[in-house]
Computed example of a mutant assay.
Amino acid sequence: MLRIGDRIIHYNVYGTEGAIPTMSFGGSPSTRWKRPDAVEAISASGLWMAVPDRSGYGGSTRQPGRTVASVVEDAAALADVLGWERFAVTGGSGGGPHALACAALLPDRVTRCAVSGGIAPPVVDGPEPTEADEQADPRRNRTSWLAARDGEQLRTQLEETARHIMEAVQVGGPEFPPDPGAAPGPPAREDPAAMARLTATFVTSHDGWLDDLIAFAKPWGFELGDIRVPVSLWHGSGDERAGKYADHLAAAVPHAERRYYIGGHIPPVNAYRELLRWLTLS
């Protein structure tokens, strides 16, 4: 646990102490508790990885009104506690903007930044987006549009989404939806650790999830064009939405590399290992 003023941040550390320092930012929503296959990949990668729960997640003190850039203070403080002068960052999905914030605002400390299935700044002006609008350009999505206008209505929708997810789990669904064409994983309800991760993500609190979405829908607090550290943008062959986001990010972030893998929104283990290996490059 880390104290920053009157706030606390909970975090886990994985991998080998003294190895290459790396900070990982989970999606929206997320938990600091990694799956066993991810923990194994981290341990084999030569990384020493810290995974903080952002404000509002997992017992970390909520920070109403935070921006994407607000995470930078927490990341720097956590790195200081761990004795890291320099470190790599990575973020998946909604964690991507937070990793990019560190790359932009901590250029003397961040060595590399890998983003997997990350989002680009949404477009929230104008009328409420239609499904066709969102399919053409995921930056114009109803969730972001609503986040910019009515947080309480958005909270109600998030609670409903979380309820549906947990109902599917209770009747035998896997921890994560399978990639297109792939067989579903084992029932999560039979794995206490998987249920603990799901509970932390979808049941305990929706504050962090809500605050993430509101932060995405307003200015992020930094410019993508200011990033100068090496950046890689990863997305799966079955994740068309992330691919469209990556198009916008690649156009905005100087010298960003595009990386593809076979799979969906969540990288399979082989792709995750490759992403981790990229973070170790000098």
Rank of each mutant, 00 (worst) to 15 (best):
E85T: 13
R66Q: 13
L146E: 07
D191L: 02
G151L: 00
R197L: 05
D37C: 10
V39H: 09
P36T: 08
I20N: 06
V51K: 07
R139Q: 07
L198M: 10
E175S: 06
Y245T: 01
G238P: 04
Y245C: 03
G5M: 01
A246D: 09
D6A: 05
P29F: 04
P64C: 09
K244Q: 11
L158S: 08
P64I: 12
P174M: 00
G151S: 11
P219Q: 12
S232V: 02
M1Y: 05
R189F: 04
R197N: 06
E85W: 14
Y245R: 06
I266W: 13
A99C: 10
I20G: 03
G185E: 01
P107C: 01
R112A: 00
C102Y: 06
R7M: 02
E167T: 09
I214S: 06
L106H: 10
R189Q: 07
D74C: 05
L198C: 11
A168L: 05
R258H: 05
I8M: 07
D191S: 13
D179L: 01
G5W: 03
D226R: 09
S144E: 00
F222T: 07
S30Q: 14
G83D: 06
D80I: 00
R35F: 04
R109K: 13
L249I: 04
R163P: 02
D137G: 06
G151N: 03
R62N: 11
Q157E: 10
P219C: 12
P97V: 02
A196R: 15
V123F: 03
A114K: 08
D150H: 08
F176L: 13
E190S: 13
K244S: 00
G91D: 11
R163A: 03
Y11P: 00
I227F: 10
G236L: 06
A193Y: 14
A252R: 09
F25W: 15
T111P: 07
G91R: 11
L82M: 15
G126V: 00
V231W: 07
P52G: 12
D191H: 12
P230D: 02
N12Y: 01
V68T: 15
A148D: 04
R155E: 03
R149N: 01
S43H: 15
V169Q: 12
P184R: 09
L275W: 02
A76K: 14
P186Y: 00
G225I: 02
G264S: 13
T16Y: 04
Q157Y: 00
R35E: 12
G181I: 01
D37M: 05
N141V: 00
F25P: 07
E175H: 11
E40A: 15
I8A: 06
T130I: 01
E128P: 05
A132D: 15
T22A: 11
W84T: 04
K244A: 00
N270I: 00
V253R: 10
V110P: 03
A168K: 14
E40D: 14
P219D: 10
S232H: 06
L106A: 09
L210N: 03
P52M: 08
I262E: 12
G236K: 05
M23D: 04
I8N: 10
V68Q: 14
T16H: 12
T156R: 15
I9K: 05
W33V: 09
P186M: 00
A136Y: 01
V13Y: 10
T16K: 13
S28E: 05
S70T: 15
V51Y: 09
A88S: 15
V269T: 15
T199E: 14
V68C: 14
A217R: 06
A44G: 14
Y57L: 08
